[in-house]
Nucleic acid binder design. Structure first.
Lengths: 94, 94, 94, 94
DNA sequence: CCCTGAGGCTTCGTAC
DNA sequence: GTACGAAGCCTCAGGG
């Protein structure tokens, strides 16, 4: 039998079935929806920055290229740091 | 001639060319990077909610279905509003 | 090894390699190009209809809204039909 | 005053208002819908060709690249033709 | 490995 | 005629 939610620890003994889990689920969905809204807000902000940059004469496409490069540089750096960290640990320098 | 940034009205006479635009550009890129970090944070939060829901016995896939349905309902409503708005405008009721 | 096309079962023994796959590929590309041309023609026709409508005093934006509405109605109807079909089948009425 | 449809030349004097424009509009919408259906058909055909190509071992992505190149070649050629045409005309060779 | 959903690019319509 | 904004198409990444 497919159960919806576990309801382990349900304390609604005899109170009319299922609405607790329903509320719990609804709450979870609303949290996700709220977060998605925030994400959309951020995305819009990013668009705004690009628009502003464009209006100042910068090429959005070139900017995206630069962002990509910078991101790669950053992760390469983190990679190196991680390796160094392992070395230090191995040498008892941590 | 491909110009980088506008620099219309640059007043940094003789100070070493172009670093003002460079700073401006760097600032814009950093704003985008900051926002992208935030976006990633939000995305992680969403993942966390799904993980939590799953640990409580809810099916993530079903949740996504529900979210989709709810989103569709919402946008259908907005669609209707938009159409009414067009009608009102056409009828001079705006 | 990156293979171009399958050429499994090539029977062009000694005839000069690869031109069969090349012809096959060329034919596929030409089919796509032909279809894209047709698609462009259709798109142009649609533009023409909107232009004509506009010249008769209809608002293209409102028309697009109406088209969207009608499409939604249609797919809702199809949805209902699908459900009914399932019911009929379940009831042995098919 | 925003008028819906021009109705310039309406000959339906006193016949009950507006249905002529309504029919005209409906006809325009149906023409668009018909064309959109055709467009969808074409798009599906294109998908089919790519599917077939893929099943024969060709890489759809590479094919898209080739199509882009061929399109550029074609328009470059047309460009050259146009220039030559201008020259011919200027030289009275048309 | 497929497939759906998000993001970016291109093109079209519009307003100045 | 040009520049801006929006819509549709295509690509790519994440999840099932």
């Amino acid at each position: 039998m497919p159960e919806v939610g576990h309801n382990s620890g349900d304390r609604d003994a005899g109170m009319g079935g299922g609405h607790v889990a329903a509320d719990e689920l609804r709450l979870l969905l609303e949290r996700v929806e709220r977060l998605k809204e925030e994400a959309k807000g951020i995305a819009d902000d990013i668009k705004d920055v690009f628009s502003e940059a464009k209006s100042r004469g910068y090429d959005p496409r070139a900017m995206r290229e630069l962002l990509k490069e910078r991101a790669m540089k950053r992760e390469e750096r983190q990679e190196r740091e991680a390796i160094l960290s392992v070395y230090r640990e191995a040498l008892g320098m941590e």
